[in-house]
Amino acid sequence: MRVITVGKKRSRGVQLIVDEYKDKLQHYCAIDDVLIRSNPKNARDIKAQIEEEDFAVINLIKSNDWVVVLDEHGQDVGSERLAELIGDAGLTGASRMIFCIGGPYGHGKQLRKRANVSLKLSSLVLNHQIALIVLMEQLYRAWTILKGQKYHH
């Protein structure tokens, strides 16, 4: 699994929580997370910024990856359904699952088109750091569900 986040440098506290969940997830799957700096070319125009971020994310995705974009307009799923999606993705022959958290203005057209599924983490709009923490926790919860284990151990 890979988590790609577009945004500013993470606070130390957020990074500690992300690292804690990465350690927990290592028992189930290899996972890495990539932070792409938002507005990498300092575009003055929002559309140009979104396109640059989109390009940077697309370049990290291989043709046989199974891609999930996290978006406020995506499907609203519970933890059990997320576990099913992860299990189903494993049956597609994909080399890895990629979860994408967009920058301040969301995802670009190329990534939306490339995505296999679009999910929302919350009805609330979350900044990328909070979305990352929620995603990491839900990925861990999903794997414990898939393996029939208790979440708190």
Rank of each mutant, 00 (worst) to 15 (best):
M1V: 07
M1N: 03
R2T: 02
R2D: 02
V3D: 00
V3W: 01
V3L: 08
I4Q: 03
T5R: 04
T5M: 12
K9E: 15
L16C: 05
L16H: 06
I17R: 02
V18P: 05
V18I: 14
Y21K: 10
D23Y: 13
D23P: 10
D23E: 15
Q26M: 09
H27E: 05
H27T: 04
A30E: 13
I31E: 02
D32Q: 13
D32Y: 00
I36H: 01
R37Q: 15
R37K: 14
S38G: 14
P40G: 07
K41I: 14
N42H: 14
A48E: 14
E52A: 14
A56W: 04
V57G: 02
V57I: 14
I58V: 08
N59L: 03
L60D: 03
L60S: 04
I61R: 08
V68Q: 03
G74W: 13
G78C: 07
R81S: 08
L82T: 05
I86Y: 05
G87I: 07
D88T: 05
D88E: 13
M97E: 06
C100K: 00
I101A: 07
P104W: 10
H107P: 03
H107Y: 09
H107K: 11
G108C: 13
K109H: 11
Q110M: 13
K113R: 15
A115G: 13
N116Y: 10
V117Y: 03
V117T: 15
L119S: 03
S122L: 09
S122H: 02
S123Q: 15
L124E: 01
V125S: 13
L126S: 04
Q129R: 05
Q129L: 04
V134E: 00
M136G: 04
R141I: 01
W143A: 02
L146R: 13
K147F: 07
G148S: 10
Q149V: 12
K150C: 02
Y151I: 03
H152W: 12
